[in-house]
Amino acid sequence: MSGSPSFVSARFPDIPSGLLGGVVAIGNFDGMHRGHQAVLAAAMDRAAEADGPAVALTFEPHPREVFRPDEPVFRLTPPAAKARVAAALGLSGLVTVDFTRDFAARSADAFVSEVLVGALKTKGVTVGWNFHFGKGRAGTPAMLFGEGERLGFAVDVVEAFTDEGGEAVSSSRIRSLLADGLIGEAAGLLGYRWFFEAEVVHGDKRGRTIGYPTANMRLPASVRLAHGIYAVAIELDGERHHGVASFGRRPTFDNGAPVFETFVFDFTGDLYGKTAVVTPVSYLRPEMRFDSVEALIAQMDQDSAEARAILQTAQPLTPLDRALLFG
């Protein structure tokens, strides 16, 4: 599976003509997990039949951040990551709506007539079985069916997607797994290995004094990834590298604010200010406090050897995982 070479990411209402007149999959799609992928695949199938673009219509910020700003959401796929996955899936484009209280107050009828028909000129709509929209969540799949018949667009509703154990796949499940360090289980629900993008920032430069210079990245406070040591793949300037990373508070030194620190194997160069794409491939161990720097270095040597071995034999989990991590 490879990304579409003509993939376009746009902000509503500035929609390129190439994304008009197609099939629109609607949802928040945080995680772009296997359940979301079922909705997106149905849209792509319908678009192929109609010989038109397949477009994901999504919303930023997360609606919960608008209505409950005191409860920050651990975003699995912020906008750039969501676009990256959408392109790898083969969608034509991603259209993002600025989600505000005013937009949320728009009636379901107005959303259909102004956004779907007026702006996107949609020929088809695909949603999940529990999709609701518009003021008071008055818009439902049944309402969409009626509007589709009236206004001339097809509607596909995708049933709930469950994993091999019969449990519903959800973003909240994936967040909990990542918080517990169960990144393999999270990847099983996502259909790819979770990744994040962040800028490399200056740290205390302590790592270079002990033979482990690191690329330091600060993640949003809402990211509840388990603290610990990871074998990682890291993309820098379009090139993929392997490394070993620590995410946590550095209890041996200062027990400060959490930082994701990656030692990139066999790499030299200035990374400050660059945006890195980091994929944790394996969780090696929890964060620990050491009685001496020498004990820490000995453990880091062991962690590095283990990470190299894991990464050298890592295989793609799915075609999507191949496109994102190995492509």
Results as ranks from 00 to 15, higher is better:
204 D>G: 00
43 A>T: 06
288 M>D: 10
23 V>W: 08
300 M>F: 08
62 H>Y: 06
126 T>V: 15
21 G>W: 02
4 S>P: 01
172 S>H: 03
155 V>N: 12
250 R>L: 01
169 V>M: 07
125 V>W: 01
108 A>R: 05
110 A>V: 04
270 D>Q: 07
253 F>G: 02
142 A>C: 01
279 T>F: 11
179 A>M: 10
294 E>Y: 04
195 F>W: 02
123 K>V: 01
54 A>P: 03
40 L>N: 09
314 A>D: 07
292 S>W: 05
60 E>S: 07
236 L>H: 06
279 T>Y: 04
212 Y>G: 15
198 A>T: 04
212 Y>C: 13
48 A>K: 12
48 A>T: 11
25 A>E: 04
215 A>E: 13
31 G>T: 01
266 D>F: 09
215 A>R: 15
276 A>V: 13
37 Q>D: 12
317 L>Y: 00
224 R>K: 14
59 F>E: 12
150 R>A: 13
107 S>I: 00
174 I>C: 06
193 R>Y: 06
291 D>N: 11
277 V>H: 07
229 I>W: 02
89 L>M: 15
235 E>W: 05
275 T>D: 09
163 D>S: 08
166 G>T: 04
9 S>H: 01
148 G>N: 11
309 A>K: 15
133 F>V: 08
117 V>E: 15
277 V>I: 13
304 S>H: 09
139 G>R: 01
219 L>E: 10
230 Y>I: 03
198 A>Y: 03
104 A>W: 06
141 P>M: 06
289 R>F: 00
22 G>L: 02
299 Q>E: 14
152 G>A: 05
44 M>F: 03
275 T>E: 08
120 L>Y: 03
228 G>M: 02
35 G>E: 10
145 F>Y: 12
188 G>S: 13
236 L>M: 09
261 E>R: 08
222 S>T: 07
235 E>C: 11
246 S>F: 07
75 R>V: 08
166 G>R: 04
17 S>C: 03
311 L>N: 10
102 D>C: 00
65 E>N: 14
191 G>W: 08
281 V>K: 10
184 G>K: 04
130 N>M: 00
228 G>E: 03
265 F>P: 08
282 S>C: 00
214 T>H: 14
311 L>Y: 10
237 D>N: 06
157 V>H: 01
202 H>L: 12
108 A>P: 06
126 T>K: 01
160 A>L: 04
204 D>T: 07
36 H>R: 04
79 P>R: 15
211 G>N: 14
271 L>F: 06
128 G>P: 09
266 D>W: 07
272 Y>I: 02
114 E>G: 11
154 A>T: 02
51 D>M: 02
152 G>L: 04
132 H>E: 14
87 A>E: 15
169 V>Y: 02
241 H>V: 12
297 I>K: 15
160 A>D: 02
308 R>E: 13
77 T>P: 01
79 P>L: 14
274 K>C: 00
222 S>C: 04
72 P>E: 05
100 T>A: 01
111 F>K: 05
65 E>L: 07
74 F>E: 10
162 T>H: 12
276 A>Q: 10
98 D>I: 00
19 L>M: 08
227 H>F: 11
265 F>V: 11
181 G>F: 07
